Amino acid sequence: MRARRQWATKWVGRMGAVHLGEDVLARARAGDQQAFAELVQAHQRVLWAVCLRITNNQHDAEDALQECLIAAWHHLDQFRGDSRFGTWIYRVAANAAIGVARRRNRPVSLEDVHAVTPDVSDRVADVDRVRAALAKVPLAFRSALVLREICDLTYEQIAVHEGINIQTVKSRISRARAHLRELLADDVAR
């Protein structure tokens, strides 16, 4: 697994500035790994954020990102172009992260959250609190919230992605937000 993670990090991280267009997507579909790397590079921060927020663990997020990249590469021909490429690959990342989180099914420690970004302590302290609180939100609610807030998907897109109706999506997002508010309020009271 570690070798795969290192390969993904090198592969995604080796690109510089990116200019995307239909030609890049067409080249990637034709099997051009460099073009695929350009597509992924443009979205790598959000892909990482989706994987990390859903799995709540750096190592699991790395595994999920690796699975996302492999799945996206192997199924690039299934991208129909009905939505933006970013929307499609965010869904692939969310599916991979949910799969890893379900397989691991282990509690998340604060050390895992802090190990992800050691420089966070140099930034705003609230980021740590939000991450820790988000880690405590149940997976179904957390997943819906991440897809809405990080991936910027609509309720309809989330419903299709999760295989649930729109009202359930709204309910899950509402419950996730309420749960976060409660956890953050409890943290402030301490």
Rank of each mutant, 00 (worst) to 15 (best):
I158H: 01
R45D: 09
V113G: 03
L139S: 11
H74K: 10
D152N: 12
A96G: 07
A61G: 13
A8H: 07
L69A: 06
E111N: 15
P118A: 02
R142C: 06
E162I: 09
A8S: 15
A140V: 07
D122Y: 05
L47R: 06
G81W: 09
R45G: 01
R175S: 14
R45F: 14
D186I: 08
W7L: 11
L65Y: 14
R181D: 09
H59M: 12
L134E: 09
R104S: 09
T87I: 10
L147K: 03
R4C: 08
V127F: 01
V169N: 04
W73V: 05
L147F: 11
Q58I: 02
I54P: 03
M1T: 13
A64F: 04
V146C: 03
G86Q: 06
A3W: 05
P118K: 14
I54D: 02
E22Y: 06
P118H: 13
A133M: 13
D119P: 00
W7D: 14
D187E: 09
V160M: 13
H74I: 01
L76Q: 07
A135R: 08
L76T: 02
A176P: 02
H43W: 01
A37H: 04
Q33M: 11
T9E: 15
V120P: 01
R103P: 05
M1R: 10
W48Y: 10
W48G: 00
I98K: 13
M15T: 14
H179T: 15
H43G: 02
D63T: 06
A144T: 02
R177G: 09
C51V: 04
W48H: 05
W7N: 15
A35C: 07
G13V: 06
D23P: 03
A178H: 11
A3I: 08
A144D: 10
L134G: 01
G163T: 04
V116G: 07
T117P: 00
R175W: 00
A135Q: 07
Y90Q: 04
A26M: 05
G86P: 01
R172M: 08
A101F: 01
C68P: 02
Q34S: 14
E111Y: 04
D152Y: 08
Y155F: 13
A140C: 09
L52R: 11
D32R: 09
V46C: 10
R45Y: 14
R45W: 13
Q6E: 14
R91C: 10
F85V: 10
T117K: 11
W73G: 12
A144G: 06
I150E: 08
V130I: 10
V127T: 11
G13C: 09
I98H: 06
A178F: 07
D82I: 09
R181A: 13
G31S: 12
R172H: 07
T55R: 06
R2A: 07
V146D: 02
G31W: 10
A185Y: 03
